[in-house]
């Protein structure tokens, strides 16, 4: 079971706080979409609107072709997997998973069969008789997933499902979530503040900030060509270089960059640390002095100060083959496609 979702001009206020601002978004059937943003950005509110726990002040929610804006959670083709799993402590795992089917009036033998099937899907086939307190965090999370999937929802909503797990388990569960989503084909909408998690599992990421959608697109596009300065910063580390757009392009303390389509005025040039190169290819950024460098295994992370701008500190991820000493002068450059420039308006 799967369905598309269409949100049309959603607005919601909590008192005077404008929690959702003009949210319009289309999610395709079977898509894995992540709502990504810092705490308080409105991503959980948006998920609650989708699940029916919050009735938005303005706007419409379509699931499939039906208007679901004011339909109660129980009557929606959605289920939510809650952050704290919200398992029923007094029921066995099988009864937990079968709960939704029981509410739907499915006979006992049939719902137990289906529950066992879903427990099998999440790798807990043998544990149907256990109680939730006998499980580890990761296992509880799987039960919550099985329980939410057992009613065969068209859209599964996941509220920071991996937030309570340790890093290693979280990375393992990401792969598993993605895998299960491919198997069942249900539309997944996943809320997280971890951009690595978002990139690892999503078909599409929706970056949110202060109740607005800042950017929406596939992970690669959002990372490499973010639509806004906020999205650029949130997706990973970013060097900011102040610039002034004029007839000669974007003028910075380091170099002039082509900026044909941009309106004149103050701007910010953004370069990812790993885009800073030493091989001389692309646009020259001039010489820079290494302040310190640290070895991270897959790269060497260095703080460098450009010779032409002694007040500026840039972060560069250099190849892990050498560890430059403080004071070493490097000749830096960047490929044109690795540069993003945001003026006040686009930021």
């Amino acid at each position: 079971m799967t369905a598309s979702v269409r949100l049309d001009k959603l607005n919601h206020w909590f008192g005077t706080l404008h929690a959702l601002r003009d949210i319009s978004l289309e999610i395709g059937a079977g898509e894995y979409v992540t709502l990504l943003g810092p705490s308080g950005c409105g991503k959980t509110t948006l998920l609650s609107v989708l699940g029916g726990f919050i009735d938005p002040d303005q706007g419409t929610v379509f699931i499939g072709d039906a208007d679901m804006t004011s339909v109660a959670p129980a009557k929606r083709p959605t289920t939510t997997m809650f952050q704290d799993y919200a398992l029923f402590p007094h029921m066995s795992l099988r009864d937990n998973v079968a709960f939704g089917l029981r509410m739907a009036g499915v006979a006992k033998a049939e719902r137990h069969r289906k529950a066992d099937e879903k427990l099998d899907l999440v790798g807990l086939k043998a544990d149907g008789r256990k109680r939730p307190h006998e499980l580890s965090g990761g296992q509880r999370q799987r039960v919550a997933l099985a329980r939410a999937l057992a009613v065969e929802p068209e859209v599964l909503l996941l509220d920071e499902p991996l937030g309570a797990l340790d890093l290693k388990l979280r990375r393992a569960m990401q792969d598993e979530l993605k895998d299960i989503q491919r198997q069942v084909g249900t539309t997944f909408v996943h809320v997280t503040h971890d951009q690595e998690e978002a990139m690892a599992i999503s078909d599409r990421i929706v970056v949110m900030n202060a109740g607005r959608i800042e950017d929406a697109g596939p992970p690669l596009r959002i990372y490499r060509e973010p639509a806004s300065l906020f999205a650029a910063d949130f997706m990973g580390e970013m060097n900011h270089i102040p610039a002034q757009v004029g007839p000669q392009g974007a003028q910075t303390a380091l170099t002039n960059l082509p900026a044909a389509d941009l309106p004149p005025g103050a701007a910010t040039v953004c370069i990812r640390p790993e885009a800073v190169r030493q091989d001389g290819k692309g646009i020259a950024l001039g010489d820079a002095t290494v302040r310190d460098a640290t070895f991270f295994g897959t790269y060497t992370r260095a703080h460098v100060t450009p010779v032409t701008a002694p007040d500026m500190v840039l972060v560069a991820h250099l190849p892990p083959t050498s560890l430059p000493e403080a004071g070493t002068v490097l000749n830096l450059s960047v490929l044109p496609e690795d540069i993003r420039i945001f003026t006040k308006e686009t930021a």
Partner: peptide, 23 residues
């Protein structure tokens, strides 16, 4: 934590009476 479990039960289609009696 009880409230969240009740919310989950409602989400899975339980009526208010069922939420109170079963959860």
């Amino acid at each position: 934590q009880h409230e969240n479990a009740e919310r989950a039960a409602r989400d899975l289609g339980a009526s208010e009476t069922k939420v109170v009696l079963l959860v």
